[in-house]
Simulated scan of single mutants.
Amino acid sequence: MPEITLAHLSDLHLPHDRLRIPARALLNKRMTSQISWRCKRRFLHVRAVADAVAADIRAMAPDVVALTGDLTNLGLPAECRQAAEWLHTRLPGPICAIPGNHDMLVRESWSETLGQWAPWMAADADGFPYLRHIGPLALIGVNSARPMAWFSAAGRIGARQAARLADILHEAGRQGRFRVVMIHHPPITGLVSHRKSLLDAGLFAAAIARTGAEMVLHGHAHISCMSTLPGPEGLVPVLGIASASMHARRQERAAAWHRIAVTATTRGYRAEIHRRIVTSGHVVRELPCWSIETERAARVRF
């Protein structure tokens, strides 16, 4: 099998200052997010930084791009339209995306908001988790975003999604595929506070423990990190990535993306993980890579 590469980025939080926002659209939970944006977040999330990440991804020409949520700040129809245009013009295809909590702050018409991302995501709210095959990769998009109470940025996947996730993972594992699960909220306890956490992380962890996966990708925490979850035959790596638009000095907080190169071995797969971060002057620098190796129970021809 030739090398196949996956680009992982998250939490674009594309600036919306130039968009026309009806006042009535802020008479709900969006109000607090807008205040946070105006007072703090607009100085941290910079469009030029996100564009630098996108340009670097294009230059590396990955086989597929995985985007783990929070493309917007308020989940407004105009923001979703802006994000769709950004995806179409800035990133190479194919793209697999999932929503983040900021994309679903309040209940809104799917067709007017997240439905605009249908080319890169599930067709509707009931279409999660969805599955995409890219060569030997099986990319599974889980939706942890739910409209929550004021001041909560938590998420849930629900029992139906968890059961469906286990079924998809089982079948993809039987086929011998390299299974990559995408979720916005970290499925790991302690990475974020309770009000930002995945409230039913146990359901997610149980699916992974029962059926296994080769890798889990998440965003939300705005920090680049690696954790693990127990699988049936060993630990499953869980990779978080910082916000792709974040202007920060600390290396783990700086805007970044993962270039994940997957190749077959005699017993399974080897994945080399390259983290590329945006430094001062929007220059992209690569950190030393690390690798993981996994076994597969079955093999398929591609």
Results as ranks from 00 to 15, higher is better:
Asn101Ile: 09
Leu74Thr: 10
Asn143Cys: 13
Met121Ser: 13
Pro119Cys: 07
Gly75Lys: 09
Ala162Leu: 04
His170Gln: 14
Ile140Asp: 01
Trp110Phe: 14
Thr113Cys: 08
Val106Lys: 06
Ala163Met: 14
Asp167Cys: 04
His133Pro: 00
Pro77Arg: 08
Pro119Ser: 11
Trp120Pro: 08
Pro99Asp: 13
Ala159Phe: 09
Thr113Ala: 04
Leu114Asp: 04
Ala172Gln: 07
Thr113Arg: 05
Pro94Gln: 06
Val142Thr: 08
Gly135Asn: 06
Ala153Tyr: 15
Met148Phe: 07
Asn101Gln: 04
Pro147Gln: 05
Ala166Cys: 12
Ala97Ile: 05
Gly115Leu: 00
Leu105Met: 14
Ala83Ile: 10
Glu112Gly: 07
Ala162Phe: 06
Leu76Asp: 10
Leu131Asp: 01
Pro92Lys: 03
Arg156Phe: 15
Ile98Glu: 12
His102Ala: 09
Leu169Ser: 02
His88Asn: 10
Glu112Lys: 12
Leu91Ile: 01
Glu85Leu: 11
Glu171Thr: 07
Gly127Ile: 02
Ile98Asp: 09
Ile140Ser: 06
Leu137Pro: 03
Arg164Trp: 10
Asp124Gln: 03
Ile140Gln: 06
His88Tyr: 06
Pro77Gly: 13
Glu112Asn: 08
Phe151Cys: 15
Glu79Leu: 05
Ala153Lys: 12
Phe151Tyr: 15
Ala145Glu: 03
Gly100His: 06
Ala166Met: 12
Gly135Lys: 02
Arg81Cys: 03
His88Ser: 10
Asp124Thr: 08
Pro92Arg: 00
Ile98Cys: 10
Thr89Ala: 06
Gly173Cys: 04
His102Cys: 14
